[in-house]
């Protein structure tokens, strides 16, 4: 089976169900002319929910965005991309959020749900997410990044630092995916969120980190430019960010200073969401975070909060 056939097959299948998660399309383009355009014109861009019941908060955030049915058409095969870092507090997507999203996908009529990951069973078991997968009876697909054949080459148009992405083959079996990062500190660039979480789908992440790490600030910019490049060919149907309990130092693995903003932030626009999280949760200037700025420059989303419709509630 050739690479082109598989890719076309994936895009065709996505188009049939009207999903927005199509590799190669852009979020803003999808909103402008896609099936969600009419709805998008009259609703919010980002939903922020505060509270203590993290599962209910995730459900509320999705409801504020129009309900899971807006993003997961009946019969769709759905992949989920939670952040599975370590079991250290504030480093992984909370199990109750994953459970809530799985339940919403089921209620929307998803025909198949799978969590995709390049990490080990020990990672999944340690943070409690494997138990959710088991209890909710969905698939957990663990892809080894040591085997290049597990990934498909996807050229990145105008890639500034990354000319080719290596997207895991498993993703192409699904009609759409939901991006579920934790926003937190990252020692490499001081911020991680929706954009960086996509490295979880990519097989040549070592190219993001230059070999034989040197004292060279260009290496930091290289990492973030690769992240922006990668995001140009990936397009989640929905982003649900865990900002409930997060580390603000020693990220991404910790242990580090633990903060409890107790927020869930959801929406389609990755740049707007990451900019919101950087500014309002980690108290950083989004313009200082290279991957956010580069993604904005690539027109992957909006960095200016004045141009983003945000609705915030407390449960």
């Amino acid at each position: 089976m050739s690479e082109k056939l598989n890719r076309r097959e994936f895009i065709n299948r996505s188009a049939k169900i009207g999903a927005t998660a199509i590799i190669g399309k852009k979020v803003l383009g999808a909103l402008a002319d896609g099936p969600l355009s009419a709805w998008a014109a009259e609703t919010i861009d980002i939903a922020v929910v505060n509270g203590a019941d993290y599962g209910a908060m995730a459900a509320k955030a999705v409801q504020m965005l129009g309900g899971m049915g807006r993003f997961v058409p009946k019969g769709a095969k759905v992949a989920l991309l939670p952040n599975v870092q370590a079991k250290n507090p504030g480093t992984f997507t909370k199990p109750e959020i994953l459970r809530s999203v799985i339940k919403m996908c089921k209620e929307a009529g998803a025909s198949e749900i799978a969590c995709l990951s390049q990490l080990t069973p020990a990672h999944w078991e340690g943070c409690g997410l494997a138990a959710v997968v088991k209890e909710e009876d969905v698939l957990l697909t663990l892809v080894s990044n040591k085997e290049p054949a597990n990934f498909k080459k996807v050229p990145i148009p105008d890639g500034q630092a990354l000319p080719i992405a290596m997207i895991m083959n498993e993703l192409f079996k699904y009609d759409l995916y939901i991006n579920m990062p934790v926003t937190k500190d990252h020692a490499g660039n001081k911020f991680t969120g929706t954009l960086k979480n996509h490295m979880g789908l990519n097989g040549n992440n070592r190219d993001f980190h230059k070999a034989n790490w040197k004292t060279d600030p260009a290496d930091i910019d290289h990492l973030d430019t690769c992240i922006a490049d990668l995001n140009a060919v990936l397009n989640p149907a929905l982003n649900i960010v865990d900002a409930t309990e997060i580390i603000t130092s020693n990220g991404p693995m910790g242990p580090g200073d633990l903060a409890k903003p107790q927020k869930i932030v959801a929406g389609l626009d990755r740049v707007a969401i990451d900019a919101y999280c950087a500014r309002n949760i980690l108290k950083l200037n989004p313009q200082d975070i290279v991957c956010i700025r580069k993604a904005y420059e690539r027109k992957l989303g909006e960095i200016d909060p004045a141009r983003v419709r945000i609705s915030e509630v407390r449960l």
């Binding site: 799978a114 080990t120 069973p121 999944w124 078991e125 494997a130 997968v133 088991k134 009876d137 969905v138 698939l139 957990l140 697909t141 663990l142 892809v143 080894s144 040591k146 085997e147 597990n150 498993e170």
Partner: peptide, 12 residues
């Protein structure tokens, strides 16, 4: 151990 997973084999 997970009961329900379909993993792609981890390369050694």
């Amino acid at each position: 151990a997970l009961g329900i997973a379909i993993p792609i084999a981890f390369g050694a």
